[in-house]
Simulated scan of single mutants.
Amino acid sequence: MDNWKLPWEGGCLCGGIRFRISAPPLLTMACHCTGCQKLSASAYSLTMAVPSNGFTVTRGEPVVGGMHGPHRQLYCPHCKNWMFTQPHGLDFFVNVRATMLDEHHWYVPFVEVFTSEKLPWATTAAAHSFATQPDLEGYAPLIEAFAREGARPV
């Protein structure tokens, strides 16, 4: 676990919301779905699945925004940054937007999902690609592979 150089700090653009990550991510991902394209105003969103017990909001009170559906996207109420998502029924992890980390230059997506919806020119360095996304059981071998092979902070 030392090679992760934890804990990590992060926050929104205005600094009103701050958080700490104290557990290694389970997986890093790029999502090409049209929902993420619209929410991020980009070709894809970059996230990392962090164990819930290793994620703490240390300042501020995020608010629900985005699609207001079963997967709650949480934002800074002031600067409106999309910071993380809490997927309904999957309480064991928080999907943190990678660029919200203070130090995120080491980040590389290990998996990309919804490539069936990607913009034709959008490419990532992900080692594993899926037209939609694997079923829940399909993530177990990806998490194991990421623990061995995923990018680490330098």
Rank of each mutant, 00 (worst) to 15 (best):
P7I: 01
N95M: 10
G11Q: 10
T58F: 00
C14W: 02
D2M: 11
L26M: 14
G65L: 00
L74Y: 13
E9W: 00
V57Q: 05
G10H: 09
F92K: 11
S45H: 05
A98W: 01
H104S: 15
M29H: 14
C12E: 12
F110G: 05
S116N: 14
F92W: 03
V111Q: 06
T85S: 15
V113R: 10
L6G: 00
E103P: 03
V111K: 07
N81K: 08
D102T: 09
L74W: 12
V64S: 09
R72E: 10
F19R: 04
F84G: 02
T85C: 13
A30E: 13
H32F: 14
P7S: 10
L13Q: 12
L74I: 01
T56I: 00
P25I: 02
G16N: 15
N95K: 07
R97N: 08
I17Y: 01
D2V: 04
T56A: 09
K38H: 12
K80M: 13
F55L: 03
V50C: 04
Q73S: 14
E9A: 03
S116A: 07
L26W: 08
P87H: 09
V111I: 14
R18S: 01
L13Y: 15
V108H: 11
K5W: 07
M29C: 11
P62Q: 00
M48K: 07
A43N: 09
P77Q: 01
R72G: 05
E112D: 05
V111N: 01
L101R: 05
G65T: 10
V64R: 13
D2C: 03
P70G: 06
N95Q: 08
L6T: 11
F110D: 01
A98Y: 07
P87W: 06
E112P: 00
L26E: 07
R20M: 13
C33T: 12
L26R: 15
M83Y: 03
M100A: 15
S52T: 07
H88A: 14
P7T: 07
L27H: 02
H78A: 12
W82P: 07
C14V: 03
V57A: 08
L6I: 07
N53S: 12
V111E: 11
